[in-house]
């Protein structure tokens, strides 16, 4: 990754370990282990993986809901992994906003929509109530709600509308980047498409950078420019969406892709699932694996001998 200045967000060797118990019961969980990637301005970077692979933890560490165990993180060239100061918190919350998975849990049931969406502005010192209201109304309009909704409470809305409120709350402070943690997986099929289209429109309109975290590979593929695949706390492959789906290299990526059920009875009846077993598929006893750029923009976590094999596969 030579051209560092190209990235708006850069994560280098990020580790997030959680420990529990003490003495002989002490247990160290490496939720995120040596993860490095960069996100370019106005790009959508997708993080996929199974539950427990550390994709959510990565997102939460970037916005500093957790303090990273080690590693470096830069946003627009500024270090955001250091000690938490008032100044850094302000910088982070001004620039990065988050959309959560569960639209019911993430909205305060005792606040009206106007209070929820306008809270970010009030915290930033906007005292004029009419101005806040005008901005809230404008934002609600943008996410497909109306002014009348502003005085209601979260329970009066359907799941899709609640997610729109969550999006409005994130967007009102005009962040440079959004971390969207499974924004559609709690929604019904017919509503998912509405929210995906809305995010796509906002992205284009406001030139947003998005870190899109999800487990639904078809949605990630549709939505993202580049995709990182995570497995047990590690990034195992990063590539442009098309490349990743056309020629996946890492055996885990292959296994993951082979498991997606497609809405097509012809292919489904003959589908062959590939199993991934790290013990069987890799021999790292002699050679240690590293993240290598196999082809332009296509990184794989592999050992030198695997690299050769992958290069052959790509016809290089």
């Amino acid at each position: 990754m030579a051209e560092e200045s190209n990235y708006i967000l850069e994560v280098k060797h990020l580790c997030q370990h959680f420990s529990s118990g003490r003495g002989k019961n002490k247990l160290l969980v490496k939720a995120v282990d040596d993860v490095s990637f960069g996100v370019r301005p106005a790009e959508t970077f997708g993080l996929v993986g199974e539950s427990g692979c550390g994709k959510t933890t990565t997102g939460r560490t970037i916005i500093r809901l957790y303090n990273p165990t080690s590693g470096e993180m830069y946003f627009n060239g500024r270090d955001i992994a250091g000690p938490m100061t008032k100044d850094l918190r302000r910088y982070l919350t001004d620039n990065i906003a988050m959309i959560f998975q569960d639209p019911i849990e993430s909205l305060n049931p005792r606040m009206t929509i106007e209070e929820i969406v306008g809270e970010g502005l009030r915290i930033r010192g906007m005292k004029d109530k009419d101005e806040v209201r005008a901005r809230v109304h404008e934002m609600l309009e943008k996410v497909g709600l109306t002014e009348e909704h502003a005085t209601r409470y979260p329970h009066e809305f359907s799941g899709g509308q609640r997610q729109r409120i969550g999006i409005a709350r994130a967007m009102i402070i005009k962040p440079k980047m959004i971390i969207a943690d499974e924004p559609v997986s709690a929604l019904d099929v017919s509503i998912q498409a509405q929210v995906i289209n809305l995010l796509n429109d906002l992205k284009e309109e406001m030139g947003l950078t998005i870190l899109f975290i999800a487990h639904n590979l078809s949605v990630v593929k549709y939505f993202s420019d580049r995709i990182g695949v995570m497995y047990y706390g590690r990034l195992v492959e990063i590539a442009r969406g098309d490349d990743l789906y056309r020629c996946p290299l890492h055996p885990y990526t292959k296994a993951l892709l082979s498991a997606i059920p497609e809405p097509n009875p012809i292919t489904e009846r003959t589908r062959k699932r590939i199993d991934y077993d790290p013990e069987r598929d890799h021999d790292y006893s002699v050679e240690k694996p590293t993240m290598v750029e196999v082809a332009p923009e296509h990184f794989v976590y592999c050992s030198p001998s695997e690299l050769e094999q992958y290069q052959k596969q790509l016809g290089l």
Binding site: S190, Q194, I196, N197, S218, V219, P263
Partner: peptide, 23 residues
């Protein structure tokens, strides 16, 4: 139709046909 076309598959590039409104 709406159900089938509202979710992206691995080849989808164009804008999704969302179903407006709610049940």
């Amino acid at each position: 139709w709406a159900l089938l076309s509202s979710m992206p598959d691995l080849q989808t590039k164009e804008r999704l046909l969302a179903i407006p409104g709610t049940p």
